[in-house]
């Protein structure tokens, strides 16, 4: 069995093969056991340096990468741009070259501009992991979503998922669409017409403008956050109306499968895209997603840091 991550960087799910996705998920399954130990530490990445370079706010992704690195004994440094030379006007290129001079092994970057991780990857010898770039991709989120689904259902192929909300601004939706399609899942997207990009049908997904038919007989409903910080305005009249038309509440859930899985990449706007009863309800996997994020990021760090090929 010779498979492996034959790549330096993880920039998106679009260019991952189904075999690579499978390898990451399998490795994450083994990593998850470490979270259950009293001593949550393995020496695997001893002497490796990981830099978290975050140009946008983040709680779960940054913390998750930090814990993943630390549980594997890497040295993890966090740079948030509010307290760095970026406020003095340093460009991404110069920041990248400065970091390179400090010999990191992995740089995890989140940036408001799509393509920023690609630029950094070209500049650095270190592995670059995209932790979200604009409305482009957020590959580790999609991988942890697939991991969570597979953990609950045992398989991915043949499952049906509806992604509901602000598809236009969502890197999570894009990364999930690419990854889910590769793993043999059927995907629907649903949202106001102003939030559905025109190219959606070319990604092999079905487009819905009303939530009720979109979520009927789905195995998974993934709700997206209304990204107030990315709204230029005018995409929908009011939050209240959006919630009324596209919010997931207990009443709407009656139209869905009995054992449907409810997901949300977080942070949630309680009472807007998802009602508290649903977010905290029995089918909600929101906290499983967070927990599994650490295992999946451990797997990605291990596979990128560990070399080129894999045999068993």
């Amino acid at each position: 069995m010779a498979v492996g991550l034959k790549r330096k960087d993880l920039l998106g799910t679009r260019d991952l093969s189904p075999e690579e996705i499978g390898l990451i998920l399998d490795t994450a399954t083994s990593m998850k056991e470490i979270a259950s130990r009293d001593i949550k530490k393995v020496p695997t990445l001893r002497g490796k340096t990981i830099i978290n370079l975050f140009y946008e706010p983040s709680t779960r992704t940054r913390t998750s990468f930090e814990i993943a690195g630390k549980w594997m004994s890497a040295d993890v440094i966090n740079i948030s741009t509010g307290s760095s030379s970026v406020v003095k006007g340093e460009t991404l290129k110069d920041t990248g070259l400065t970091l390179q001079a400090m010999h990191p092994d992995v740089v995890v970057i989140r940036h408001a501009a799509a393509g920023a991780p690609q630029i950094l990857a070209g500049l650095l010898k270190a592995s670059v992991i995209n932790a979200g770039d604009g409305a482009h991709e957020h590959p580790t989120q999609a991988l942890l979503d697939l991991f969570t689904i597979r953990e609950k259902r045992g398989t991915l192929s043949g499952l049906k998922a509806a992604i509901v909300g602000d598809i236009l601004h969502s890197r999570v939706a894009r990364s999930n669409i690419f990854a889910m399609r590769k793993m043999g899942m059927q995907v629907r997207v649903c949202g106001p017409a102003t939030m559905l990009p025109r190219y959606m049908d070319r990604l092999g997904v079905e487009v819905f403008h009303r939530i009720e038919p979109a979520i009927a007989d789905m195995d998974i409903i993934m709700m997206l956050r209304i990204q107030l910080e990315r709204q230029g305005g005018g995409l929908f009249p009011t939050l209240r109306e959006y919630s009324k038309l596209f919010g997931l509440n207990l009443d709407r859930l009656k139209a869905a499968k009995q054992d449907v899985l409810i997901m949300h990449p977080g942070p949630i706007n309680r009472g807007v895209e998802i009602s508290p009863e649903v977010a905290d309800g029995p089918y909600s996997l929101i906290l499983n997603q967070v927990e599994n994020g650490v295992a999946v990021r451990m797997a990605v760090l291990y596979l990128l840091a560990g070399g080129q090929t894999t045999t068993n």
Partner: peptide, 10 residues
């Protein structure tokens, strides 16, 4: 890790 030709499956 990183030295061996092959990376074993965890």
């Amino acid at each position: 890790l990183g030295k061996a030709e092959t990376q074993p499956v965890v």
